[in-house]
């Protein structure tokens, strides 16, 4: 009886510790969310800050929930289609994923590939001009969908179609 009680007590304490460690992860995640919520500001920060942000995103993605990274790459002199892709991406996020963006589960960056500060990320995605990439990060594993072709095909003259495609990919990646 004594042994059984001790075992139950031990298990309960252990469980409590697990809960605490989960809370600790959640808290640190919240910190990361706060730091990464302001999307456009990331574009103007320096490379080290971006790297720190990236690490926080990966750290968050090591929890059981996936994080979705959206990258709109562009050059300095942009064409109407490239601008349309960015606008349609914004519209998609504002319309369907505002909560996930605020929670930090979706992180979007608009990056000029001509800016040297963005060379590492541009190289990683092989983005030398306009590009749209959606990356799911889960348990440190990244899975990227390249939507550049669909963007150029639909964003300007068939925006609703592009939004449907992007929405579908993001919804799938958030699962």
């Amino acid at each position: 009886m004594f042994i059984a009680s001790t075992l139950i007590l031990f298990t309960a304490c252990n469980s409590n510790n697990n809960q605490k460690s989960i809370n600790a992860v959640t808290d640190s995640t919240n910190v990361a969310q706060t730091k990464t919520t302001n999307i456009d500001s990331v574009v103007n920060t320096d490379a080290s800050k971006k790297e720190a942000n990236g690490n926080q995103i990966i750290q968050k993605a090591n929890t059981k929930q996936s994080v979705v990274l959206i990258y709109n790459f562009h050059v300095t002199n942009r064409c109407p289609s490239c601008i349309a892709i960015e606008k349609a991406t914004t519209k998609t996020l504002d319309t369907y994923f505002l909560a996930e963006v605020k929670q930090g589960r979706i992180k979007r960056q608009i990056l000029n590939v001509d800016d040297k500060a963005n060379s590492a990320i541009s190289e990683k995605y092989q983005a030398f001009g306009s590009g749209l990439f959606v990356t799911k990060v889960l348990n440190g594993k990244e899975t990227t969908t390249d939507l550049t072709g669909d963007g150029f095909k639909f964003a300007r003259n068939k925006e609703e179609r592009f939004i449907e495609i992007l929405k579908s990919i993001i919804t799938e990646d958030l699962k």
Partner: peptide
């Protein structure tokens, strides 16, 4: 081949 073209254009 639109996505393919944009991936390989460079």
């Amino acid at each position: 081949l639109s996505n393919w073209a944009y991936q390989k254009v460079n």
